[in-house]
């Protein structure tokens, strides 16, 4: 896996979590994605790119795929792909 860690190495490690480890319902920001994966490149074209804020909505009955809400659309992402997306939870209480 080639993850461009350079930009994010200054963050505390506890704040960098693979997407599949996030509890459902949390908002987070995408930090980086494995650019050598065909699935993830396709997801990037569908709008899931580093920097975007997302909400993990739910999983399908067999715990995969996840549904993830982006600004503008909701995408499905399989567990094995979600493992290769690093995110940072966003602290916010919008009510």
């Amino acid at each position: 896996m080639h993850l461009p860690f350079a930009r994010i190495e200054k963050m505390p490690l506890s704040e960098i979590v693979p997407l599949d480890q996030m509890p459902l319902g949390t908002r987070c920001r995408v930090l980086s994605m494995d650019e050598d994966s065909e699935s993830l490149l396709r997801l990037m074209e569908m709008g899931l790119i580093p920097g975007v804020e997302i909400t993990i909505e739910r999983t399908a009955p067999l715990n995969s795929p996840f549904s993830v809400r982006l600004p503008g659309c909701t995408l499905a992402i399989r567990r094995e792909d979600a493992e290769r997306v690093l995110v940072r939870p966003l602290e916010e209480n919008k009510g």
Partner: peptide, 11 residues
Amino acid sequence: SPPPPLLLELP
């Protein structure tokens, strides 16, 4: 063939 990427938008 490898498992096809899931290109699924929930409209």
